[in-house]
Amino acid sequence: MFQIKLSLFSKTKSLENKIDLFHDKIIDVAMTFKKAITVFLREERSVEYKKLCKQIKNIEHDADSLRRDIENKLYSHNLIPDLRADVLELVENLDRIINRFDEVAYKFYIERPQFPEEYHSRIKELCEQVSDCAENMAIASRAFFRDFSTVRDYSQKVYFIEAESDVVSGKMKEAIFDSDMPLANKLQLSNIIGEVADIADIAEDCADELLIFTIKRDI
């Protein structure tokens, strides 16, 4: 009996650690992405950028295996039956954020967009905003598991930063189309800016759902 109890506690602890690790991965990928874009703007497809892209890919792989493990454990051990579907959806949505970071970083690597010098500060600002957005989303989600009364505070930050990123990306697109560069370049840059800004949009969608899950989380 004592052994069964111990094993139950250790299984619970292990799953709790996995959920925490999964949230760490979002913060990791956001930080790495920010760094990678700064390197890209400075050195384009350099060895260091390649290394950072690989790092992002590895984080994405780790997050995928953690997600599968969490989902599998929740179902196989029949845990949190009332909130399991919500937690699975939350984890899936968070995983979409990580995937999008990976896709965008890879897109930079493949397409090698040529951002004129005057746009560098703005693209850095946008990347900073989407990273902050993802980080706050991770914190909000972590709070859902431990201290759900603070979920609203972090979700509010996500909403605020997402709105800011929309403004920055909109202004950038406007400036690009007002410039003299060839239309093909304009379209490529506009598209890639849209993809970066999309990360914040996905985080916002996550926050929307999380707030609904939080209402259900209350006893």
């Binding site: 506690f9 619970t12 799953l15 845990l79 949190i80 937690v87 859902f144 431990r146 009364s149 006893i219």
Partner: peptide, 18 residues
């Protein structure tokens, strides 16, 4: 009582389930 305790104790959802 439990609502107040849970707010104060901040138990992880998975542990709370156990």
């Amino acid at each position: 009582g439990i609502k107040a305790y849970l707010k104060h104790a901040k138990i992880h959802l998975i542990h709370q389930d156990l």
